[in-house]
Each structure stands twice: as structure tokens, then as C-alpha cells.
């Protein structure tokens, strides 16, 4: 028994050392900066708490993340449903359609949106041509631009778990519901939706957490008018060289994310294929 334990430890050692040296130690070092400000151990948190800017940015980040999550899930639903119903060639085509953006760098996709959403870009020209608007719309360097870009990048993260849940729903359950006299709304509300819900919440949690920490897309599409938490942290470091503030901001974000994950894990059976079969 003891021998196996030694062997197990030896086999695990490289991975553990790798994570420890390259992930845990730097993270701990970064967070320790948060408590080493000249003003005192918790001085940085005090600064953050009193800062009007920080509070606004924090709020804005959450509002944007919530909006992005909502829009993403709404858009993901029909796509996932279509995927779950398609077969053969059309399924493969649709699946590649969803996955293809994954193979293109986020940077490239974000720059593409900058070109598309410009004042005189194709989208504004189209809208004006159609007579929808007289003046070009402000689609860039504000929350609208940020949300468009983020929804686009995050959509597959919502589609895939939703599709997996939908594909697992046994068609005969819907037939059974129908045979028992349930109308389409009842079947949807009492059978289909509850069975798909874990996938929906899983995808939504994923998207929400990812959008809280998003950097490239809001930095390029939002600019100075739509600052998010990750941009603020970056500016603490690059503009103000305030490493301790950046560390404190990161720590707060991480704790919030962990707390949300804990709640999600509690509410959602993400680890189990609860409704398999």
C-alpha cells in the first residue's frame, strides 16, 4: 500500500510542481502584493472601496456581463435546438458553423468587428441605405460595441452545453407527454424545459464568468467610454504602476467569481449527467 502511495506521488509530482511553480506561486505572489501597500495591510481595499470610479466600473462590468449572458443564451437557444434536430450533412455544417470562430484569434475577430461597426462601416451604411436611420449609429467605443463583440465570442460556450442537454432529451418523453393530453406549452414547460435547464444554466454560468474577466474585446471595442474591471486593473499596472491596487482588484474579482461558482455548483448538477437516458 505504502509503495503505491510513493509511486502515485512520484507520478503526480511533475504536474503538481508545474502547477505550483507556474500558477500557484505567481498567483500567491500577486495577491500578496495586495496586502503590502505602504498605507497598511488592507489599505488597498480601502482605496478601492472609497473609489467612485472603481465602484462604477465594477457595477458596469456586472451589468454588461449580465446583459451579455442574457443575449447570448437567447441567441444560443434556437441554434442549439436546430443542432439537436439536424442530422448528417446539415448537422456537420451547422456544427462547424458554430465551432469555426473558435479557430480564429479573438484579436482578429475583434478587429473585424471594429471595421464592421465603424461610423462609416458596412453596417451603418446598410442601415442608412435601408432608411432605418439618418445619422450613423454609434456602435463602437461604447457598451453596445462591447456587447456585440462579447456575445459573438462567447456564443459557442452557451450553445454547446445547451445542445448537449437538448440532444439528450429522449423524444419519447415528449410523445408520452403528448399522449397524456398535454398541449405544446405544457410539454415545453413541464418536460422539455426542465430537462434542458441544467445545460442552459451551465452555459449561462460559463458565459457570465468569462465575460466578467473579458479584456481584449472590451478594451478594443469599448475604449475609454466603457471601462470594465479587467481594463481598470490593466490601467492600474500600465498607467499608474500601482501593483498593489491591481492585485487587490484581481483578488476581489477572483473571490466574486469563486463565490458565484460555489453557488452555481450548489444549484446545478453540472458534474453529473443528471438526466442521462
Amino acid at each position: 500500500m505504502a509503495r503505491y502511495r510513493v509511486e502515485t506521488a512520484c507520478l503526480l509530482a511533475p504536474a503538481v510542481l508545474f502547477l505550483l511553480l507556474l500558477f500557484v506561486v505567481p498567483l500567491a505572489r500577486l495577491f500578496s502584493l495586495a496586502f503590502t501597500d505602504e498605507g497598511g495591510v488592507f489599505a488597498t481595499f480601502g482605496v478601492l472601496a472609497e473609489s467612485e470610479v472603481y465602484r462604477r466600473v465594477m457595477l458596469n462590468t456586472f451589468v454588461v456581463a449580465l446583459a451579455v449572458t442574457l443575449i447570448t443564451v437567447l441567441l444560443a437557444w434556437p441554434v442549439a435546438y436546430a443542432l439537436s434536430r439536424l442530422k448528417g450533412f446539415w448537422f456537420a455544417l451547422a456544427l462547424y458553423g458554430v465551432l469555426f470562430p473558435f479557430w480564429i484569434s479573438v484579436l482578429v475577430r475583434t478587429f473585424s468587428w471594429m471595421i464592421l461597426l465603424e461610423r462609416n462601416g458596412p453596417i451603418n451604411r446598410l442601415l442608412q441605405g435601408l432608411g432605418v436611420t439618418d445619422q450613423p449609429l454609434a456602435l463602437l467605443f461604447n457598451d453596445t460595441g462591447v456587447m456585440i463583440g462579447m456575445v459573438h465570442v462567447l456564443l459557442p460556450y452557451a450553445i454547446m452545453p445547451l445542445y448537449a442537454a437538448m440532444a439528450r432529451v429522449d423524444r419519447r418523453l415528449l410523445l408520452a407527454s403528448d399522449g397524456l393530453g398535454a398541449g405544446l406549452l405544457d410539454t415545453f414547460a413541464r418536460v422539455y424545459f426542465p430537462l434542458v435547464l441544467p445545460g442552459l444554466l451551465g452555459g449561462a454560468t460559463f458565459v457570465f464568468l468569462l465575460s466578467l474577466g473579458f479584456f481584449i474585446t472590451p478594451a478594443l471595442l469599448g475604449g475609454a467610454n466603457a471601462i470594465t474591471l479587467s481594463m481598470l486593473i490593466a490601467s492600474f499596472v500600465t498607467d499608474r504602476l500601482a501593483w498593489s491596487l491591481a492585485a487587490a482588484g484581481s483578488l476581489v474579482l477572483l473571490l466574486v467569481v469563486l463565490a458565484l461558482l460555489a453557488v452555481a455548483a450548489r444549484l446545478l448538477p453540472l458534474d453529473k449527467g443528471m438526466f442521462a437516458r
Binding site: L173, L175, D178, G179, G181, R190, L195, F275
Partner: peptide, 20 residues
């Protein structure tokens, strides 16, 4: 007439019970 308006009772091969 769709199944839901027929007042039939159906027992499926693998029962198709609602798992939730």
C-alpha cells in the same frame, strides 16, 4: 386528431417516465 386530444393511455417499451 393529435395524440393529446385522443384520450389514450400509452405504455412505452422503455416506459418513457419523466426522469425529473
Amino acid at each position: 386528431l393529435p395524440a393529446r386530444h385522443r384520450n389514450i393511455g400509452m405504455v412505452f417499451q422503455n416506459y418513457a417516465l419523466f426522469p425529473h
